[in-house]
Amino acid sequence: MTIALAIEQLLNGLQLGVMLFLMAAGLTLIFGVMGLINLAHGSLYMVGAFACATIAAWTGSFWLGLVASLAAAAAAGAIIELTVIRRLYDRDHLDQVLATFALILIFSEGTRWIFGSFPLYLDIPPLLQGAVALPGGAEYPLYRLAIIAVGAAVAIGLYLLISKTRLGMRIRAGESDREMIGALGVDIRTLYTIVFALGSALAGFAGAMVGALQSVQVGMGEPVLILAFVVIVIGGIGSIKGALIGAILVGVVDTLGRFLLPQILAILLPPAQAGLMGGALASMLIYIVMAVILAVKPRGLFTAHG
């Protein structure tokens, strides 16, 4: 394996990790503040992707599509919180799971009814087309590097929001003692709506960014949602820092595992068999990592209130 190929695979893992962070940050924020298990988070990822693809097709501007993805996902999240989620806060987690699973079906069939069953496609904007030379002579797509940079910027922005603003102070207080901040005069209902809309906007933004790398289609959020749950369990439920570290860990482990395991097994097995077994083991690798981490630190790498 050459240095250029190793760097390329590391960057692929980092790019996957950044996208998972955008999903997991909103998910862990919602669970940490509101105590809500939201299985419909992947549907908001899909909403952002479809909004971006639609507006980009109408206007010819990918950038307007990105703005539309944020607005559409945030609006959808606020509407969901006001109409459905608000009735679930005092209910059992099983009720929350069933209700948000029903939202997955509603969003999927509603999207299929509006856009049809055929996928939509997003073009990478001209500004971000092309490639950048890596050490060793290989080239890496500029758009993927831009995704990594955007993810880093979002992580910094979330840190500043949570740690330096009045809204962030209320969010931290809501994680620690929601009854107390309600008693102090904070409108807890409005805070919940803002947090849910913010988490939804992050998911929609992630869907829009990934939409330029793959097709935009119904159900595209569910596989990512599973990985996002793995991320927040590894990082620690309710921890933004944990979501970032966990997402990068999952992205790099998953990417390098799928790349390296077939090559390692090819030393002992025929190439076809090594490819099949390596792919199967690679798909299990992040869950093995999660199990090992939870065996050592049952609350994840970082606890929200530790």
Score class of each variant (00 low, 15 high):
153 A>L: 09
243 A>R: 15
289 V>I: 06
176 S>L: 13
126 P>N: 10
129 Q>E: 15
160 L>G: 12
65 G>T: 03
285 L>Q: 12
91 R>S: 13
198 L>P: 10
56 A>Q: 11
227 L>D: 14
304 A>V: 11
23 M>K: 14
144 R>Q: 13
216 V>L: 05
158 L>C: 12
141 P>V: 01
129 Q>L: 03
76 A>K: 01
74 A>R: 00
161 L>T: 08
94 L>Q: 12
47 V>K: 07
154 V>H: 08
54 T>P: 07
222 E>W: 07
174 G>N: 10
86 R>L: 07
50 F>W: 01
271 P>T: 00
8 E>N: 12
68 A>W: 00
79 I>L: 14
144 R>K: 15
284 M>E: 09
49 A>H: 08
196 F>P: 07
8 E>H: 11
268 L>C: 01
203 A>W: 05
100 T>W: 04
162 I>L: 15
43 S>M: 06
194 I>T: 07
22 L>R: 07
190 T>S: 15
290 M>Y: 02
29 L>H: 11
255 T>M: 14
301 L>K: 14
107 F>G: 03
120 L>F: 05
64 L>Q: 08
125 P>K: 02
267 I>R: 12
239 S>Q: 15
140 Y>W: 03
268 L>P: 04
18 V>I: 14
123 D>I: 00
219 G>C: 04
103 L>E: 09
36 L>D: 05
242 G>S: 14
305 H>M: 07
59 T>P: 06
252 V>T: 12
112 R>M: 03
130 G>M: 12
242 G>L: 15
62 F>A: 06
272 A>M: 09
107 F>I: 08
278 G>P: 10
98 L>N: 08
33 V>C: 07
260 L>I: 11
175 E>V: 12
217 Q>T: 11
245 I>R: 14
42 G>T: 06
253 V>F: 01
173 A>R: 13
139 E>P: 11
29 L>D: 10
96 Q>N: 12
196 F>Y: 02
148 I>C: 11
206 A>L: 05
115 F>N: 03
182 G>L: 05
51 A>R: 11
276 L>C: 00
278 G>F: 01
59 T>I: 05
158 L>K: 08
16 L>F: 01
231 V>C: 14
125 P>D: 01
294 L>S: 05
79 I>G: 09
43 S>G: 10
75 A>G: 09
297 K>I: 06
163 S>M: 05
243 A>Y: 06
212 A>E: 08
121 Y>M: 05
105 L>V: 10
112 R>C: 01
52 C>I: 02
282 A>C: 07
254 D>N: 13
1 M>L: 11
288 I>E: 05
195 V>I: 06
122 L>F: 02
233 V>L: 10
67 V>D: 01
35 G>V: 05
288 I>Q: 03
91 R>E: 06
103 L>I: 03
149 A>W: 04
245 I>P: 15
76 A>N: 04
265 L>M: 02
90 D>T: 13
13 G>I: 03
172 R>L: 09
131 A>R: 14
224 V>Y: 06
